[in-house]
């Protein structure tokens, strides 16, 4: 069995910034437990000698020339803003500090 507990689900909700109510925590705990049991089998064949693949088609050194472009107008930047103050986005009080 996997180690999914309601406390873990609640912690994951905090990390993912999704406020979960108790009913959701309970439901997700059960569902995730079943899913994780099922997908944990990847470790059966993932032996140390197998390299990881992060990109399906291997490429490297894909670069862009240092030439300006693609800039949005101020109106475009702000056109979907839920709330703005003059030319900036406005958010309510921030509790924690930046990382």
């Amino acid at each position: 069995m996997s180690e999914i507990t309601p406390d873990l689900v609640r912690h994951l909700g905090v990390l993912a910034r999704i406020q979960l109510n108790d009913e959701e925590v309970e439901r997700l705990t059960g569902q995730l437990d079943a899913i994780v049991d099922n997908i944990a089998k990847v470790s059966e064949v993932a032996t140390p000698d197998v390299p990881a693949t992060s990109h399906p088609i291997a490429l490297e050194n894909v670069f862009r020339e240092d030439v300006p472009g693609d800039m949005l107008t101020l109106d475009q930047v702000l056109q979907n803003a839920p709330e703005r103050a003059d030319d900036r986005f406005r958010v309510t009080a921030i509790l924690g500090e930046e990382q």
């Binding site: 990847v42 993932a46 197998v50 990881a52 693949t53 992060s54």
Partner: peptide, 10 residues
């Protein structure tokens, strides 16, 4: 999990 899944991909 994630690391193993990437290996399965290989």
């Amino acid at each position: 999990y994630y690391g193993s899944a990437q290996k399965v991909r290989t």
